[in-house]
Simulated assay, not measured.
Amino acid sequence: MPSFDSPARGTVPPFTMGPALLFCPADRPERFGKAADRSDAVILDLEDAVSPADKAEAREAIIAQSGDGGLEPVRTIVRVNPVGTPGFELDLEALAKTPYRTIMLAKAESAEQLKALEGYQVIALCETAAGIVNAASIAAEPNVVGLMWGAEDLLASLGGLSSRNDDGGYRAVALHSRSAVLLAAKAAGKEAIDSVYVNIPDLEGLAAESRDAVASGFGAKACIHPNQVAVVREAYAPAPEAVADAAELLDAAAAADSGVFQFKGKMIDGPILKHAQATLRRAGLPAK
């Protein structure tokens, strides 16, 4: 699994990210451990998943659960409220009492906002028009370790009604935003996380979207229900035949000792070899 690494991290341990991240309301501490056990990383949510009346209790729950026997800091993210809201500073005050140093910043909109989070590893959640437009400058900030995009908040910020068409596919503006965040993250050498799939019973739709996320280059996908985790993991795990084909291709490349060569009737060059190396890495094997 790839590890987040930031020059501004200092003594903060690197955050290890697997393919399936699972949101958990921060006011439901009885679910924290289960969510962490069922996913590659848990996102304790202090923002949308918690009503304003319950946010103080949620902060105390995170503090209480962070002692001995608590969640692993390297697999724990805390989604904080947006910069400029009453809850933002209170969230940071609470986190200062915990070992958790990986933050997901809700509604990240500018590089300037990241300066208030020095000392934290930040996953910037770009889910407004301003956040999408400024994704490249946000990704360039040294304490940003990844970018995620959010579809429904984005459409709400545009005055729209829904991110998806009647057939379940994303509208053009959502697809554009998804691509913009992916490109911005990768251009800055950061990780990219695909948005949640809100139709929980539709596991086939989730599987198709997860496969597309893998093929497009997203390093992970966020989940909102434990049942989604296995589907995302399966999408990210290459089939045994794909692993075997990738290994065979890379062995052939080493034997050919040439920049371009033919393999099983196909012309092979650098980008194709990088695809094969990515397949081996997703299988947990060293890329040749």
Rank of each mutant, 00 (worst) to 15 (best):
L183V: 14
V243G: 05
K55R: 13
L183E: 03
T16W: 08
I62P: 10
G265Q: 04
R171F: 02
G131D: 03
Q113K: 01
A255N: 11
A287N: 03
P226F: 08
R164N: 07
R79N: 00
S137Y: 02
E109A: 02
N165C: 11
A136K: 00
A49V: 08
P73G: 06
T85D: 04
R233S: 06
A130D: 11
E191P: 10
A111L: 00
R171E: 08
S177A: 15
A156Y: 08
A287Y: 00
A130S: 11
A136M: 01
L175I: 03
Y236N: 07
L154G: 03
S216L: 14
L114A: 05
A255L: 15
L285Y: 03
A140Q: 01
E248T: 12
A276D: 00
S39P: 09
L182S: 07
K97T: 01
D194H: 15
A253F: 02
F32K: 08
K115G: 02
V12S: 12
L182T: 01
A276Y: 01
F32T: 05
A106S: 14
N143D: 03
E191H: 15
D167T: 10
D269E: 13
V243T: 06
N165Y: 12
A174P: 00
V12P: 04
A26Y: 10
V173H: 04
F15Q: 07
D68K: 13
L117E: 06
Y170F: 15
E47S: 05
P86E: 04
E112S: 07
V181A: 12
L147C: 04
I224Y: 03
A213W: 04
T128V: 03
I268T: 01
L125P: 02
A61K: 12
S51H: 14
P86S: 04
I272H: 12
R38N: 08
G284Q: 08
H275L: 14
A278E: 11
P238D: 04
L158H: 07
D245K: 13
I193Q: 08
G131A: 01
S6Q: 11
I268F: 01
A129H: 09
I200N: 06
D40E: 07
E191Y: 15
A213H: 03
S177T: 00
V231A: 08
G69I: 11
G18Y: 11
L206Y: 09
P13Q: 09
T279P: 02
L280H: 03
R59I: 10
D167C: 12
V74R: 15
Y100D: 06
T98D: 07
Q121S: 14
G87D: 14
V50A: 07
D202Y: 07
S51D: 14
A124K: 05
K186W: 10
D212F: 11
L285F: 06
A237S: 13
V198E: 13
D91Q: 05
C126Y: 01
A106Q: 02
P19C: 12
